[in-house]
Amino acid sequence: MSSEMRDFMAASSGYDGGPQDRHSCIVLVDMTKNVLLGQFSDYRVPTGGMQVLSDRLRDEFIKLGGEVYTNTPVTGMANCSSGSAAEHHQALLTAAGKPFCSKSVILALHEGALEKLWWRTLSMETAWKAAIPGEASKLFLGFDKPWWREAPFGFYEGAEVSSLDIEHTYFIGTQADHVSANTSTGQSNRNSLVLASYAVAFPAYRWANMEATKANISAFQGRANAFVGSETPLVPNATGFTVSQHMVDLAMHQLHQLHNVNAGTIPPPYTAAAIHWPVSWHNWGIGANPSEVIRKVGQLDAYQNVFICGEAYSKSQGWAEGALRSAEYILEEYFNLKPLAGMPTKWLSRYR
């Protein structure tokens, strides 16, 4: 992909193009579909959020007698040594040392995780080179009030896109939207949250390298407000990412740039949290034939009962829908399951 094309993508969509070895023909199709015609797209989210899909799958699987193991990384594969060949074919090896034998194995893993498995096939070598990983990051800032609803800004909520390092900014809302009051002060709780930066590719890499522990710089300290005790001013560090003061300063500087206001117009945040995904999404590389790669990794040549699916090997890379379509393709194509009830008849047409 040329540097001009990459700049066009970043300026028009807010998504940095990432490495320049992307398949330009696929990029043009995606740009036309997602950016230029994005206003006509039909975006859908399950009631209750995307998490309900995995929760329902887990619950239904357990009802059928299945066992769910979390935090159990797969470290390798081998021929199963127990049971007859007709009953069991493959064994998944785990970090805990317990093998899981099965007739068939479906791995919803990206190329980085698959590459750590000790077995290799020509199909997998092709897939590793075809799907190029990209990184992403998010930086959340908490404020005492929804300053964007006041002058000189004057908007209630929404999203903004820019060519700055913050890329995408989402104004999420305030506690005052849900009637709440501090009994000691009688003030309405107006604590508000902003996704100050949702960045991908190079900008995400730059944000990741501003982490306090990695850059050996001062961590953001935060402060108390009327509704957050001074002993716990920060959001719990559940992501393992320590926000630096430099990250907050840069984000605040770029928020001022974005709205073309003088420094100090936007009040400082009282809390911050961030997360970085080294492998968050994928793109097809130069010369990749998505249909061919999807078929090859769908059912591996050397292991006829090992199947690969996921966003990395889909025709909707970077989207949860890509992972869902890829999984549905495997189940219908190789396990002869009927399509999901209510799904569009052409939902998998691009895969066949």
Rank of each mutant, 00 (worst) to 15 (best):
P233V: 01
A288G: 08
C101M: 04
L195S: 13
G264Y: 09
T32P: 00
K315F: 07
T70A: 11
L93Y: 10
A327N: 08
K145S: 15
L53F: 03
P133V: 02
T72G: 00
Q187F: 12
A181S: 13
T75P: 06
Q20S: 10
T239A: 09
V29T: 11
Q304D: 15
M124I: 08
G83P: 04
E135R: 10
G66D: 10
S54C: 05
V261S: 10
A108G: 12
S326P: 01
L193G: 06
Y334N: 03
G49R: 05
D59M: 06
A130C: 06
I330Q: 06
N182V: 08
A288Y: 08
L92A: 03
E67C: 12
S291A: 14
H246Y: 06
G38V: 04
M77C: 07
T271Y: 01
K129V: 00
G318A: 04
A320C: 08
S13C: 05
L28R: 15
L36Q: 05
V35L: 01
A108Q: 03
T126Q: 13
P146C: 11
V306H: 08
V105S: 02
K63G: 00
W148E: 10
E211N: 11
P19G: 07
P203H: 04
S326H: 01
R120D: 15
W277T: 03
E167W: 01
I294M: 12
A341N: 11
Y334F: 15
A78R: 15
S316R: 13
Q245T: 15
S197T: 02
T72F: 00
A181P: 00
R350G: 10
A263Q: 15
Q187A: 15
